[in-house]
Amino acid sequence: MRDHSYAKDGSKALSKNFHVREFKCKDGSDPIFIDDELVALLQKIRDHFGKAVNINSAFRTASHNAKQKKAAKYSQHLYGKAADIWIAGVSVDTLAAYVETLLPGKGGIGRYHADGFVHVDVREVKSRWVM
């Protein structure tokens, strides 16, 4: 995991299709923590579907995370290891099923059908849920 400054590194490319600014906390804080393995996972998803991967939420500060209705107290977002994503024209189930092929036996995958996104994270243990 690396920390980045939104002010200094906001436009810095982390991979072919992702930049530091996409991972910032919604509270506008600086720095931003971003796990390299998460970026690699998102890039694989982008390459597979050939469409933009939209990030609703990635890194969160503890104070911002505490304000989220469905957030876990020790959310992987706090460590820069998670992103809530969606792809235009791709269902939650289709997206989650593909991510499952990339994270067999590890990582977190949460299906949020009502909100239209998939939570993905690169934790060492396997966790799956549907909301």
Rank of each mutant, 00 (worst) to 15 (best):
A96R: 03
Q68C: 15
K81C: 05
D36L: 03
H113R: 14
L38C: 08
D93G: 06
R46C: 01
K51A: 07
V92S: 06
G80W: 03
G28M: 12
I87C: 00
N56F: 11
Q76I: 07
S63C: 11
Q43K: 08
S29D: 14
A52T: 12
A72K: 15
T94A: 13
L102C: 04
L38Y: 04
R60L: 07
K69H: 12
S91I: 07
D35V: 05
R46Y: 10
S63L: 10
D115I: 09
A66W: 08
L42R: 01
G116W: 09
I85P: 00
T101D: 01
L38E: 10
G116T: 06
R111I: 01
K69S: 14
W86Y: 09
V90P: 04
H119L: 02
N56S: 13
G105K: 02
A97L: 02
H64I: 10
K73L: 06
W86R: 13
K70R: 14
G110D: 09
V92R: 02
I85V: 05
K81T: 05
R60N: 10
K70H: 12
K44E: 04
H48Y: 02
I55P: 00
F117N: 08
T61I: 13
K44W: 03
F59T: 10
K70Q: 14
S57G: 06
G110K: 05
H64T: 08
I34M: 06
E124C: 15
G108A: 10
D84Y: 05
L42M: 09
A72V: 09
I87L: 00
V120A: 00
S57F: 04
G50Y: 01
V122M: 11
D36H: 13
K81L: 12
V118C: 03
N65L: 07
R60E: 07
D30P: 13
Q76K: 11
E124L: 09
G28L: 07
G107L: 06
P104A: 03
Y112L: 11
Q43N: 05
A82D: 04
V122P: 03
V122S: 03
H48E: 00
Q43P: 06
V90G: 05
D35P: 11
V122I: 14
N56L: 11
R123Q: 07
I55V: 02
T61L: 04
A88P: 15
Q43M: 08
R123T: 05
D93E: 03
E124M: 15
D35L: 14
G50D: 01
G50Q: 01
I32T: 12
I32Q: 11
G80N: 03
D35G: 05
A72D: 15
N56P: 14
A82R: 05
S91M: 11
I109Y: 09
G28P: 11
K69F: 10
I109N: 03
A88K: 14
A71S: 12
G110F: 01
D47Y: 00
D115Y: 11
G108D: 09
H48P: 00
A114T: 12
R111M: 06
G50L: 02
A62Y: 14
T61F: 09
A114Y: 13
S29G: 15
F49N: 02
S29A: 11
I32G: 04
E124Y: 14
D36S: 12
T94L: 05
K106A: 08
K44A: 02
Q68W: 13
V39F: 05
A40F: 05
T94Y: 11
